[in-house]
Amino acid sequence: MNALGPEPAPAEGARLDVLRSNLTAVEQRIAAACAAAGRPRSDVTLIVVTKTYPAADTRLLSALGVTDVAENRDQDAAPKAEECKNLPLLWHFVGQLQTNKVRSVLKYADRVHSVDRTRLVSALSAEVGKTGRPVLGCLVQVALEGDPAATRGGALPADVPALAEALAAAPGLRLDGVMAVAPLTGPFAGDPVRAFDRLAEISSLLRREHPAATMVSAGMSGDLEAAVAAGATHVRVGTAVLGVRPPLG
């Protein structure tokens, strides 16, 4: 026993050491990227993507000072969030969200990054109204591929203004900004610098009408530097912190 509670079991202690080392490396990368871009480190929030990893890892991350975690599948996230409900964490939902999952997701999510259609806006707003929960922060997911049918979701850039207007006007919802994933197809495939520069342009246009929508969620383990250079305020990092993911069930 120490001042912080029981000593971790050997396996847990080893995992804690791995996570601490990985977090340190990621923090160094973010700090270096901020310095190269002439931005203060405080400009960028690290969101650790905990998908496919157990609640035990989430608890260890919290003990190491992580404040923001993300999940992309409700069937995995809901029980994990329940198990970790007493931890001082903000939960971000970053996956494609079907309307039949909205009720479950809103039991734990503090922010949804993947709003990509007006039907989802309506479903989220209606559920917030039913539950009386606090206002839900939302991001418009942008399909930088130019074809949402061939992507992991997102609205076409041309459709972002109208979707943002609908979101901003919806009771119980707050328009926080935009989110994107570096595309694997289309004009920006394999070029995260250009992709995130395009997202920055979309964000700038959005802020003309919605000045408070300042959040730009972009960048993952392999391309966080390009995202920070383009002005990302939040980077979503999983593998670089938690290791190579086990296969999805």
Rank of each mutant, 00 (worst) to 15 (best):
L205S: 15
L61P: 00
R133Y: 05
D191C: 06
G146L: 04
G146C: 03
G177F: 11
A226V: 07
A77W: 00
P8D: 07
G154Y: 04
R208Y: 09
A182C: 07
R29M: 01
G146N: 05
L136D: 14
E145I: 02
V115D: 01
V49D: 15
V140C: 12
L173H: 14
P10V: 03
A149L: 06
L205F: 09
V94P: 14
R39M: 03
P161A: 06
V26M: 11
R73V: 02
L87K: 00
H234L: 08
K51V: 02
G154I: 00
A226F: 10
K130C: 03
S62Q: 01
D76R: 01
A32G: 11
P134E: 05
S62A: 15
V228E: 15
G137M: 11
V112R: 14
P79Q: 07
A25Q: 13
T151V: 03
D176K: 05
V66I: 04
G13W: 09
N22I: 03
S21H: 12
A150F: 12
R198A: 07
D223R: 07
A212Q: 15
A218M: 15
L156D: 13
A32W: 08
D43Y: 04
G13Y: 05
D116M: 01
V102N: 08
F188L: 04
A189C: 09
G13K: 06
L23T: 06
G129V: 07
G129Y: 14
L64I: 05
M179F: 15
L139D: 08
L4S: 13
G132D: 07
A78Y: 15
P6L: 07
S204F: 08
G38C: 10
D159N: 09
Y53V: 00
L97N: 11
V142A: 00
T131M: 04
M179W: 14
R117G: 06
L167W: 07
N100E: 11
G146R: 07
K130R: 13
G222S: 05
